[in-house]
Amino acid sequence: MLQRRLTYSVKFYIKRCFSSKVPEKPTWVTIDRSKLPKEPKVDREVVDLLERLSLVEFNNQEGVDRLTKAVHSANLLHAVNTDNVEPMDSVLEDRILYLRDDVVTDGNCLKDVMRNATKTLEDYYVAPPGNIPLKQKERDYGNKT
């Protein structure tokens, strides 16, 4: 209702302006979804795989729905013809990558890198066991000081 009231008064203003280069109506086109390729399904297998790869849970059906919607939206990209178009990684792709001198100017800041760790033990970070082979093995390559 507020919108309608606005429109009446604004229309009056518009008529008084110069003929403007600004288009009067929205210019977006509606995309025919039937012409798009089929969307990949977000099924149980995909949900399990993603949860494991992300170590983040969907939590509930809402999460799954959210992903389905995102995929549905992303699928619209196929309405754009990208034949012979190279993918763009970065807008700086034709810039020269800066290379550093081989000099040691960092590190030696044990306190800085450890100060925010919740759990430490004698200057080591502590993690639970995991991703280890069935038979326990100490992967120690050198002398432990």
Binding site: V103, V104, G107, C109, L110, V113, D123, N143
Partner: peptide, 15 residues
């Protein structure tokens, strides 16, 4: 730019 030297004390060559 942290050092790569072998055998340094734990986490001292970490930027």
């Amino acid at each position: 730019a942290s050092s790569t030297a072998f055998g340094a004390p734990t986490n001292t060559q970490v930027s």
